[in-house]
Design a protein around this nucleic acid. Structure first.
Lengths: 116, 116
DNA sequence: GACACATATTCCCATATGGGTATGTATTAT
DNA sequence: ATAATACATACCCATATGGGAATATGTGTC
């Protein structure tokens, strides 16, 4: 796992959070489960997807640690493991300084151009 | 574009930044081009990929606006458009409050347990 | 135990991907 | 004009994906 094989079309979806989050439905699920734990049925209702599809997305999210599950009677309660999103946040954050710098330059140029 | 078709395996890679960034090689490229503009050849040398593969990754990044290109003689100079990463940053940021809260609860529990 | 309910897995299928090789297309050099 | 350099595209191939339908598994209920 995590190794690259010759003709792998892309790093497996189950291998890292970046891939898991690339799928819009999975982002919806993460948002939906951010504050409370919820049974699968609620997610199915919220997303309007078939139950098997939802279960498969949950499986992916679980494999990369983005959600946690616990059984409650016949239900499985899922919740978002927000801390697992942190690496993505950190990665994007490394560009924050750069974009503010770029914006600054754009602003400077605009001011310069507006002066006759 | 951006629409969902019946049996689409996943939102097209060219449709949004989340997908573009899901590929490790493309993240490397974005980091490599973050501070300076560079010709394709430099990227090829840095990543150790074949030139066509690099060009294809650049194409994807360009289509979603994550890099900009300009011609300079025979070279094409690419640079990261850092601001385009901002939406990802914002999305991950919505979970920041939640994870600090979760960490706090873990800490509280740990302190409670350590008291006899 | 039989049955209902909630999820998870398996299977099939169409489509998206990424890598490589071969081939186009600009643009500069001779 | 011809050749060389630097990229971009087209094409082929193996693999990954996601959706739905059918089926298996797990867990209360009667």
């Amino acid at each position: 796992m995590g190794m690259y094989y010759p003709s792998m079309a892309r790093a497996s979806t189950t291998s890292d959070a970046f891939n898991a989050v690339a799928e819009p439905r999975r982002r919806e699920i993460l948002s939906f489960l951010a504050f409370d734990e919820r049974p699968v049925g609620d997610i199915v209702a919220a997303l309007g997807l078939e139950q098997p599809s939802v279960s498969k997305h949950l499986r992916v999210l679980r494999d990369v640690g983005l959600v946690k599950a616990r059984r409650d009677g016949r239900n499985m309660l899922y919740r978002t493991e927000a801390a697992a999103i942190r690496p993505l946040h950190e990665w994007t954050r490394t560009f924050e300084r750069i974009w503010s710098h770029q914006l600054l330059r754009i602003k400077e140029r605009a001011e310069k151009d507006s002066r006759p």
